[in-house]
């Protein structure tokens, strides 16, 4: 806390302890799931509960990997939806952001107003018409049926972030590329876009997280097990099957939280950047 003067040794030690304590409290649900995932079934349902496993066992992880065909299916579906959306959102938002950030043209104000307006509208409003549309087009229950709406839902914020990134570049660079004979496409791709990598990284991790955790669309547009993503599949297994002991479920949870946690811890800076640049979003 900056308002504490720097020569106060005692508050510093106290602050450090507070940091440890708060971190532990925040992480405790995750720690609890991980501890549970290493217990055998008998211990999980023991009365009274044990916090630290008496004996660490890998059984639950082996069950998830060998005896649970749904888990890899959910995992692959989630990865497909995430990568598919990223592959569309990144180039589309870079191109659109370049036009919005570097050009003045008729219709720009309207596009900008629309982007700001849809950012304020909760997703649920779009769901019924998209469901009806996908029913007609035969997109329900397909990977594409998630990737297309996810792309559209993540584009407004992505365009806004890219628009600001391109705008910050000094115009001399663009001018000199033009003088060297580069056309608009080359200028965009080869001169300008390498300078907005931070913006693209922010868009990428923001979109990654949004798709990885999306629940309402994934639950509504995909109804068979073979099309479910992790965020929908794991909770449904908890409800549907009595054979699903919490040991297996906690191992599955731990495995599905692992990739996104690693991505977050490593690329945290860009995610925070994305939150800040996109904080106009409702």
């Amino acid at each position: 806390m900056r308002y504490l003067s720097s020569n106060q040794k005692l508050p510093r030690a106290l602050l450090f302890l507070l940091g440890v304590l708060v971190s532990l409290i925040v992480l405790s649900p995750i720690i609890w799931i991980i501890l549970t995932s290493f217990k055998d079934t008998k211990e999980i349902y023991a009365v009274p509960l044990t916090v630290w496993p008496r004996k660490f066992v890998w059984t639950n992880y082996l069950t998830v990997i060998n005896g649970l065909p749904e888990f890899p299916i959910y995992f692959v579906n989630t990865v497909k939806a995430t990568l598919g959306t990223l592959l569309l959102v990144l180039p589309l938002s870079a191109a659109a952001g370049y036009a919005m950030g570097r050009y003045d043209f008729p219709g720009k104000t309207a596009v900008n107003a629309f982007i700001i307006a849809v950012l304020a509208i909760p997703y649920l409003v779009f769901l019924v018409p998209i469901y009806i549309m996908e029913d007609i087009l035969g997109l329900l229950d397909t990977n594409l049926g998630l990737i297309l709406p996810y792309t559209a839902l993540n584009l407004p914020l992505a365009i806004l972030i890219m628009q600001n990134s391109y705008r910050e570049i000094p115009s001399e660079l663009e001018d000199s590329a033009r003088i060297d004979g580069a056309n608009a496409f080359q200028t965009w791709l080869l001169v300008m876009t390498p300078l907005v990598i931070t913006g693209l990284a922010a868009v990428a991790i923001f979109t990654f997280v949004a798709v990885w955790e999306e629940y309402m669309f994934a639950r509504t547009l995909m109804f068979s097990t073979s099309a479910h993503t992790l965020s929908v599949g794991l909770p449904s297994l908890q409800v549907e099957s009595k054979t699903w002991a919490y040991g297996t479920l906690s191992a599955a949870l731990a495995l599905s939280l692992l990739p996104i946690s690693v991505v977050f811890v490593v690329l945290r800076k860009y995610f925070i950047e994305g939150v800040l640049r996109g904080s106009v979003k409702g």
């Binding site: 955790e213 965020s231 977050f264 945290r268 995610f271």
Partner: peptide, 17 residues
């Protein structure tokens, strides 16, 4: 990193936990 981590835990999975 620890205090911000829940941001990326899908809310539905947090629900299961």
């Amino acid at each position: 990193a620890a205090i911000l981590l829940p941001i990326v835990v899908p809310l539905s999975l947090a629900g299961v936990m």
